[in-house]
Design a protein around this nucleic acid. Structure first.
Lengths: 206, 206
DNA sequence: CCTACCGATCGGTAGG
DNA sequence: CCTACCGATCGGTAGG
């Protein structure tokens, strides 16, 4: 129906605006005027600013999954998928999928000092993402592609830190070497724990 | 004089408030009511919200230098000072020197998608900090404490990413292992490029 | 989805 | 440093 389509148009714009102005800086008045709607007409779709924020977080997560996670899932599980996930994250920031930089990095640092259900929703999205990253690492380990002593949560922490670092260097510092640096850091870390094909076969005893 | 003292009290509070609510979320009205001053009396110290934001950034930088940079400078240049800098950064977040988490990490992600002089001031503070980190690395290299092939800017990028990662895990995720993870990541990276005392003497030909 | 409105708060000013 | 304001905008409501 039409109401649902309008809602999607609103949310798409809300997500872009929030990535620049923050989830608190996102205002119903500005959103309405940019979309040439009345404030109350737009407001009626959500019922409160908090609901709008929660809906924006959900919409941003769909976009993130679409652009970062899904393409990587086409790669075979193990080392190739893990590398694909890292590459598509860096691409996602490089192509400014959200105009103000990574929506979730911004939201994480905006809400990390405040309580509330918006913060909880941001934290949930981030731990879902860290969980996905961890699973990709665990699979690579179970496939015998990386050192079995690797702790998935530790490596996920480090990779995510490099992603945040790339987002920071690129968007705040406008450093052209941001992605080169992040790639170098990630590659060194992953190559350091990689097990060669020959070694993988040997370990499997095949 | 008394005006200057009042100004410091205001800025001290402004910095704390901004670390939680963001530099845009910092409002003159709330600041005034928490300090039991009139809005206009407080306002007169700065002349505009933008000037208040710039003054808060400067005050935050003094606090940061005091707590993170100065103590590390007491250590001998080279590897010990580099390690001290990393440790005091993690301590700084662990002890919540700013109640809402690292002021500069928050400000970086808040302003990374917007133009203006506040953004420029945040970017300047961050590149000053990255510069200090780079210098500490370069000294360690020049002292023969770490592999001469290390690129200071690359390593500074990586260490800073781990700091942001620790801030994220600790403040948003309330992960008790945040600092353990960051320490492990930093230690592995630094130990990997470290040159032993014996080796340092040999390379110097002494 | 709209117009018309509400009280509260925003940054900022006048005048002292 | 204050009181007393200003226009603009905030989130939200009434009624259609």
């Amino acid at each position: 129906m039409k109401g649902e389509r309008t809602r999607q148009v609103i949310l798409d714009h809300a997500v872009n605006l929030a990535s620049v102005e923050g989830l608190e800086g996102l205002t119903i008045g500005r959103l309405a005027s940019e979309l040439k709607m009345s404030k109350s007409g737009l407001f009626a779709h959500f019922g409160s600013k908090e609901e709008l924020q929660l809906a924006a977080i959900e919409a941003a997560s769909f976009r993130f999954i679409d652009v970062v996670v899904m393409p990587a899932l086409k790669k075979p599980r193990g080392y190739p998928r893990l590398v694909a996930l890292c590459k598509s994250w860096l691409n996602y920031v490089q192509h400014s999928v959200f105009p103000g930089g990574c929506f979730f990095a911004a939201a994480s640092f905006e809400f990390d000092g405040r309580p509330g259900i918006v913060r909880d929703a941001v934290a949930k999205q981030m731990s879902d993402w860290m969980g996905a990253l961890e699973r990709a690492i665990r699979m690579a380990r179970d496939e015998g592609h990386i050192d079995p002593k690797v702790e998935p949560a530790q490596l996920a922490f480090e990779l995510n830190a490099f992603f945040f670092g790339a987002n920071f260097s690129f968007n705040l510092q406008h450093d052209k070497k941001a992605f080169e640096r992040a790639k170098k850091a990630i590659t060194r870390r992953l190559e350091g724990i990689r097990i060669s094909h020959a070694e993988t076969r040997k370990r499997r005893g095949s």
